[in-house]
Amino acid sequence: MFRVAPRLLAAYTAADIQAKLESSAALKPVQSIRVVDVSAGCGSFFNIDIVSPVFQGKSLIQQHRLVNSVLKEEISAIHGFTLNTKSK
């Protein structure tokens, strides 16, 4: 029987993370989201850029915490990520 490595089954794709962010109520209305898998498709490292007016008036750490809370499950599964947030 062919067995897929369990770790691969748990891997996230850029599309998964993008969909999660786009559907999140905390970030609506979203102007643009860009998620790039920079681990050559392994699903372990992502660059994330988000533009949303919800970030207006918030400090950088508040903005990042907002996104961290949306991606709580993903963050604990991946190796790392970089995040850039803009309000416009």
Binding site: L60, I61, H64, N68, K72, I75, S76, G80, T82
Partner: peptide
């Protein structure tokens, strides 16, 4: 804050490397 490194200034979290 779920990642490292973390930076603290005067006892207050500044953020990670991205910030």
């Amino acid at each position: 804050w779920p990642t490292y490194p973390q930076v603290y200034v005067d006892g207050e979290l500044l953020g990670g490397f991205d910030i």
